[in-house]
Design a protein around this nucleic acid. Structure first.
Length: 424
RNA sequence: GCGGCCGUAGCUCAGCCUGGUAGAGCACCCGGUUGUGGUCCGGGAUGUCGCGGGUUCAAGUCCCGUCGGUCGCCCCA
């Protein structure tokens, strides 16, 4: 970069997605939305910013995402707004705002949207990242859990990964269930407080469950003997989880039970899951999700259970790169390149290219007055299958030379036969 | 918020230790082929060596600062 001026630098933690990479992003998000659509999940787009309170109440005041990572700013009208750090709370807000829960249930929605989190960037972690996800809202049926999990799992497979599925149930918000367990856990942690890492000791009060996420060696050692949530959850949650597991068996999705899996967003209840994959540097998850049966009520809405997931596009691509597998050789959209020699032919090239485009054929042509050799080179660079040459001879006769760039066959056809000649 | 490494051509990097005319490959443009690409050969354009200060006759190279990037801790997709 020749300039030290900031305007020639994308903000910290952000990046441009340029060709040819951008084709892969495009391809993956389309694959995701298509896959989700075939399961009945309709696309939704929510605003990139929301009232700050939505995330404080939805995601949770104790969560790291809300306390440390939000892009929060006042607008000129004095509102406190926040760039969307995660996808579920906004979707739930939209459902409640428009009364979709009064229509047919479950409401099934899918999105591909940017998320924003103020974090120190590193491999697989940027301040703006694209997530694809789906939400099934309004049903507590464990088969919905299975449907959602299978859907995300299948998409990752179709994308070219071999995702490792970790599964857990964290029960529901009640003294008979998770709250009861948290008391037991807190007691255990108090007993072992001196052995914990200091960061984890501080979290004792606010969110003892997160202690399971700690990577501090001392803490991990302590947690090996900690009581497990799965042994304390209520009968109804236990039953629900058993049915999820058995439904996943039915549809042939392999999973590993991970009783220590606790995810970072406070709204999760019952089923939680995460996909692990190699090649992400110090990150390990390409995505995850879970039930959020209390979210609607936390926002002031009616009881409305739901479950969803989010998957990071950049992390999927990183994982694919580390496998050395490009899911697809994205077929270039340019099918025909029109080579023109001379001013008159240049104008004819514009017209021919546009005629082809109007007929649905990808076409391009030279705008830099290149030599014929240069244009032929540009033609192969464009990925076109055919070069259509308009030279003096052709212009005089009203014909065009159509060259197949793969076989190198070339034939001369009338101008109005070009379209037929390049249709394969 | 804390720590390691790195900033030289559009890209990937060498040169720095041991100061002395700014380099390679790729990419781009032109030519070899007066109308034929992807291979080959020849040629060309491209840099305030991140920025600021210091040492020195002389700094890309040594010293200090600063900004940026990257990787890791933490957390998460």
């Amino acid at each position: 970069m020749a300039e030290d001026s900031k305007i020639f630098t994308a903000p910290k933690g952000t990046k441009d997605i340029l060709p040819p990479q951008s084709w892969r992003w495009e391809h993956l998000t389309r694959l995701a939305l298509d896959t989700f659509a075939r399961a009945g999940f309709a696309p939704i787009t929510t605003p990139d910013f929301e009232h700050t309170e939505l995330f404080e109440r939805g995601v949770g005041n104790a969560s790291e995402v809300v306390t440390k990572q939000m892009y929060t700013f006042p607008d000129r009208g004095g509102r406190s707004l926040t760039l969307r750090p995660e996808g579920t709370a906004p979707v739930m807000r939209a459902v409640l705002e428009h009364g979709l829960e009064r229509g047919p249930l479950p409401v099934k929605l899918a999105y591909a949207q940017a998320m924003f989190r103020y974090e120190r960037p590193q491999k697989g972690r940027t301040r703006q990242h694209l997530q694809v996800g789906a939400e099934g809202i309004g049903s507590a049926n464990p088969l919905l859990d299975a449907e959602i999990i299978e859907l995300s799992h299948r998409f990752l497979q179709e994308a070219g990964l071999e995702p490792h599925l970790l599964l857990n149930s964290i029960g529901h918000e009640d003294a008979s269930c998770r709250q009861g367990y948290i008391k037991v856990l807190s007691g255990f942690l108090q007993e072992h407080a001196p052995e914990l890492a200091s960061d984890d000791r501080q979290r004792l009060e606010t969110n003892p469950l997160r202690t399971f996420d700690s990577k501090e060696k001392r803490t991990v050692e302590v947690m090996k003997d900690a009581p497990l949530l799965s042994e304390y959850i209520c009968d109804a949650c236990r039953e629900h989880f058993a049915e999820v597991c058995s439904a996943l068996d039915d549809v042939g999705v392999d999973f590993e039970l991970e009783p220590r899996l606790v995810r970072g967003l406070d709204y999760y209840t019952r089923t939680t899951f995460e996909y692990q994959v190699a090649g992400l540097g110090s990150q390990s998850a390409v995505g995850g999700g879970g039930r959020y049966d209390g979210l609607s009520e936390a926002l002031g809405g009616p009881p409305l259970p739901g479950i969803g997931f989010g998957l990071g596009i950049e992390r999927i691509l990183l994982a694919l790169d580390s496998k050395g597998s490009w899911t697809t050789t994205v077929e270039g959209p340019i099918h025909v390149y029109v080579v023109a020699l001379g001013d008159e032919a240049e104008r004819a090239a514009l017209k021919l290219a546009i005629d082809l485009r109007r007929a649905g054929v990808g076409a391009d042509f030279d705008l830099m007055s290149r030599s014929m050799k240069g244009q032929m080179k540009d033609a192969s660079r464009s990925g076109a299958r055919y070069a259509v040459i308009l030279g003096e001879d052709e212009m005089a006769k009203g014909t065009a030379a159509v060259k197949d760039l793969v076989t190198t066959d070339q034939k001369t056809v009338a101008l109005d036969e070009v379209l037929a000649a390049v249709r394969t």
